[in-house]
């Protein structure tokens, strides 16, 4: 059985790219601890030789041809797919500088 403590929550939050304050960490230590304690009952189930069920469907998934679809332009003549971008520059997604 896993012990859920502050160090574990901090580590997993870092992996999840989430910034938590001390109050949040304390709350998650408690609530995630409770939930994982409940989840631990799965160890009682004999699953030897059972293939995990990962997908919701049995059919073989079909792939579409790898072709770009035109999403069209907005009223200003810019690509419509950019309408939801947080920031746009020269008809592209603007991101912060990554390499100094």
């Amino acid at each position: 059985m896993i012990e859920v403590n502050e160090a574990l929550i901090r580590k997993v939050a870092e992996l999840s790219r989430l910034e938590l304050n001390d109050a949040e960490i304390a709350e998650y230590v408690k609530s995630i601890g409770d939930i994982l304690k409940h989840v631990d009952q799965l160890s009682q189930v004999n699953t030897e030789g059972v293939e995990p069920m990962v997908y919701g469907v049995d059919e073989v998934l079909r792939l579409r041809p790898d072709q770009a679809e035109d999403f069209g332009k907005d009223a200003q003549g810019h690509p419509k797919v950019l309408s939801c971008a947080p920031e746009v520059m020269y008809d592209g997604f603007k991101v912060p500088q990554i390499i100094g």
Partner: peptide
Amino acid sequence: DAYYRKAGQVRRL
């Protein structure tokens, strides 16, 4: 294995 894989097995059952 202890969590995701195990849960997938119980899901099958």
